[in-house]
Design a protein around this nucleic acid. Structure first.
Lengths: 249, 249
DNA sequence: CATTTTTATGCATTTTTATGCGCATTATGT
DNA sequence: ACATAATGCGCATAAAAATGCATAAAAATG
C-alpha cells in the first residue's frame, strides 16, 4: 500500500471515530507502530489532525455557531451517522435533508466514495466541499435563516424533478400509527417530495423522536425503508416497525 | 505503443482505481519502470496527477482554501466593502457574486436595511443568515468546491429570470479597452447574466486587478455604472474610465 | 537518399525514501 | 513514585527514484 493511501485511511478513520489509537491502526493497516507515528506526525505537521499521546484526534475546527447548536446530542447523532454511512455505495445519487444528524453524516463520508449529493442545506453543502470526489448539487430557493436551509416552491419543484437512489432525512417525530410527522408545514412538504423522488428512504432518528407525533404528516411507515437510530435495533420498541417491513439499524 | 497512448492509459487507470503502482504499470504496459517514472513525471508536471513514492494518485486540488484566499488583501477588501455598503438602499433587490470582497460587504450590511439579496455563494449566504432582515434567495446549481459557489446552466437560467436594482461583483481584471474580463468561462457567463438582470452594475475591484486582462470577456466598460476600489477615486488611472461615464468610489 | 539531430527507451550506478527494530527517554495513570 | 505504555532516535535494509550513459528508432535536414 502507498504511504499516501494509508494516510488517507487514517484521516477517514479519524473523521469517523473522532480518535484513533496508534496500536489499532498498526494492526488494521499492517504496518509497525513506528510507521503509524511517522504518519501521524506528518499529518499533524500538515495541520490535518492533532497528535496526542497514544494516537490522534481531529483538528479542532473554528466555526462554532451552527456547530454549537448541532452539538446537542452530538454523540447520539454521530453514532447514527456512523451506521448510516455504510448505506452509501459508490456512484449513487443521494438527497440529504437539512438535519444536523445529516451534517454529521456528511462529515464522515469516506473519501473514496463517488456520489452525487443533492441538498438544500448550507452547512451540509459547505461540509461536502471538503470531500474530494462527491458531486454536490445545491437546491436553490428562499433561505430560512434559522435552519440555514432553502425552502419554498423552488425547492419543492426542484426535488420533484429528481430521481435518486437514496434519501437521508431527519424527522420531527415518528410512530407506527401516524408515520413520519413534522412541526413545519413547508418542511413536511419538501420531505414528501424527497420520498417520492427516492428509491430508498432512510430516516435518521435519535431516540427522543421515537413515538413522537407532530402536526403535519410526511409519510406512512410503509414508505420508509430504513430507520437508523442511536439505540439497539433489537429493542422491542421497534417490533411494530419491523412488522411493517422497515429495517432498523 | 506510442508514448502518448501509454500516458493516456495511465491516466485512465488512475481515474478508475484512484491509484497506480509503477511496478504494475511496468508489467501491464510492457516497458521498464524507468519509462513509467518518466511518464509519471511528465504527467505530474502537467498537473494531471500527483506523483508519490511507489506510483501516483489523482491530483488533489492544492488550491488554497477559501478561508485563505479571503484573508489575503483583507484590509483592502474591507475598505472597498465600507464604500460599497453605502450604495445599498432600503427595499432594493440585489445580486451578489461570489467574490471574497462581497463576503466582506455581506458582513457589514447595516441591520436596519431591508433588502432582497440573490447570491450563488455559500459563504455569502451563510454570512447573511446572521442579518435580521434581509431576505436571501440562494441560486441553486452544481457546486464548485474550490470557490464554494454554484455554477452551470441552472445558475445562468435562474439569474436570467431575475430583475434587480443592483448587482455587486468582483472581477478577474478590468481595463478600458477590454472592459471586465474573467479567467473562468463559466463565471464570465454568469456575470454577463447578472449585468443584464440589473439596473445598476457595481464592480468591487482591488488595485491589483486594475488594467489586468483575463481570457474571457464579461462586459464593456460602458455597461458598468460604478467601480469601487481601495485607492483614491481621484487617481489619474481612473480618468479614462470616468470619460466612459463610470463613477469611481 | 544519406546523414545529422532528436526522441524514446533501457541499463547500471548512486541517491533517496520508507519502514522496521532495538534502546534510551519521556509521558501517563494509579 | 513506580510500573507501564508510548515516543523519539539512530541504524539497517530493501525498495523506489534519480542520474548518467548507451543505443536504437524516428524525424529533420541538406
Amino acid at each position: 500500500m502507498l504511504k499516501e493511501e494509508r494516510q488517507h485511511q487514517i484521516l477517514d478513520k479519524i473523521k469517523l471515530n473522532r480518535k484513533v489509537l496508534s496500536s489499532d491502526l498498526s494492526i488494521e493497516l499492517n504496518v509497525s507502530e513506528d510507521t503509524i507515528r511517522r504518519d501521524l506526525n506528518e499529518l499533524s505537521i500538515k495541520g490535518l489532525i492533532k497528535k496526542v499521546h497514544g494516537g490522534a484526534l481531529p483538528k479542532e475546527s473554528t466555526a462554532p455557531s451552527y456547530e454549537e447548536r448541532s452539538s446537542f446530542n452530538l454523540k447520539e447523532k454521530n453514532s447514527i451517522a456512523k451506521k448510516a454511512v455504510n448505506l452509501i455505495k459508490d456512484g449513487q445519487v443521494i438527497i440529504m435533508s437539512g438535519s444536523t444528524t445529516n451534517l454529521q453524516l456528511a462529515k464522515i463520508i469516506p473519501s473514496d466514495i463517488n456520489a452525487t449529493i443533492y441538498t438544500y442545506s448550507l452547512p451540509i453543502a459547505l461540509q461536502l466541499t471538503e470531500h474530494p470526489s462527491v458531486e454536490i448539487i445545491f437546491i436553490g430557493g428562499k433561505l430560512n435563516k434559522a435552519a440555514q436551509v432553502t425552502v419554498g416552491l423552488d425547492v419543492v419543484s426542484s426535488i420533484s424533478e429528481l430521481r435518486a437512489d437514496l434519501c437521508f432525512m431527519g424527522t420531527g417525530g415518528i410512530n407506527v400509527a401516524n408515520g413520519m410527522t413534522e412541526p413545519d408545514w413547508e418542511v413536511s412538504h419538501i420531505k414528501k417530495c424527497m420520498i417520492s423522488a427516492s428509491n430508498s428512504v432512510i430516516v435518521l432518528c435519535t431516540k427522543n423522536k421515537l413515538n413522537k407525533v407532530k402536526r403535519y404528516a410526511v409519510s406512512p411507515i410503509n414508505k420508509i425503508n430504513t430507520i437508523v437510530t442511536d439505540i439497539s435495533p433489537d429493542a422491542q420498541i421497534f417490533n411494530p416497525f419491523k412488522e411493517k417491513g422497515v429495517t432498523i439499524l
